[in-house]
Design a binder for these strands. Structure first.
Lengths: 156, 156
DNA sequence: CGTATCGCTGAACAGATTGCTCATTCAGAA
DNA sequence: TTCTGAATGAGCAATCTGTTCAGCGATACG
């Protein structure tokens, strides 16, 4: 589970050139192929690397609007609300949280007008008491993991 | 930019078995290799598929705590705050939003105690007026895109 | 001080895949 | 009718993968 420097370089390399093969990877890293192979296998079975699924851009799919909704749930309705939200394609992720709201979810929509439809569908469910939505205008830091990987690799 | 049914199946297939090759892909889809190749190339140059970077699990890296922080920024300090947050590895993403706060960011930390350190580092910056944090307890719907891809592929 | 274990190395081999090109067919647009 | 874009099926050289092997240095342990 601890990430050493070589592991860090492997992840970095894969992040930059994902379609690279193990052989080419070993060359870049200056290690034997077996080593690169073994490290990569270990990172994957560790769960550090979950997979290499395609990163799809919702905007390119026709959903350029992103929003975050904070939801307040009626006592005991949590499981039902979760199940409900899981059926809405525009709900990209859902968290239960401490603090002001009970849940936080990320939404996408085709337009600001369409966002209204999505929100109606999301909150149009009995267990949801209140919802407050924040529309994303800019995304100065897109979802990233590299800096964290680098930090984790340093602390060896 | 419009996604047809075949494109949808390509993305679905890649999501399930990311390390699959183009040849095997064409076999599964029942099309010629060149077709699969061309479609995949198009999806990538379209920007629909951004890439195949490794999906790294922060928890496996030693950062099991996730939180969302809503920030209020002093007028005109936006750019400085953005730059500041970009330098913090534990800030995984940052959005500017409408609504209550001015910015929303996703944080990770090694523990609840460590989260305090991270928050101090995040808000210990002049331009930030106020911050309210919601700690994630559960993640009923992890970040996903498949349902949306399926919906987009249907609407052909 | 021996000894076992572990990770890394370098090499080898057959089988499969990739990148690329070509000629052909088909369907919709002009 | 003619043109253009997309898909097909085929072929080839170069490369990579999966796998196995033996050797080597470092570390842990009795």
């Amino acid at each position: 589970m601890a990430i050493d420097h070589l592991d860090g370089r492997i992840i970095l390399l894969l992040a930059r050139e994902p379609r690279i093969g193990v052989l080419e990877m070993s060359r870049r890293l200056g290690v034997a192929r077996g080593t690169a192979q073994a490290r990569l296998d270990r990172l994957q079975s560790n769960g550090v690397i979950r997979g290499f699924g395609p990163q799809v851009d919702p905007a390119a799919l026709g959903y350029p609007v992103t929003a975050f909704a904070t939801l307040q749930i009626r006592q005991g309705q949590g499981p039902d609300v979760r199940a409900h939200l899981a059926t809405v394609p525009e709900v990209l992720e859902l968290h239960t949280t401490t603090g002001t709201g009970d849940m936080l979810c990320r939404l996408v929509a085709r337009s600001n007008a369409d966002l209204q439809r999505v929100i109606d569908r999301v909150v149009g469910f009995d267990g949801i008491v209140r919802a407050s939505t924040a529309i994303v205008m800019e995304n100065p830091v897109p979802l990233r993991i590299i800096p964290l990987v680098e930090q984790a690799a340093e602390e060896t």
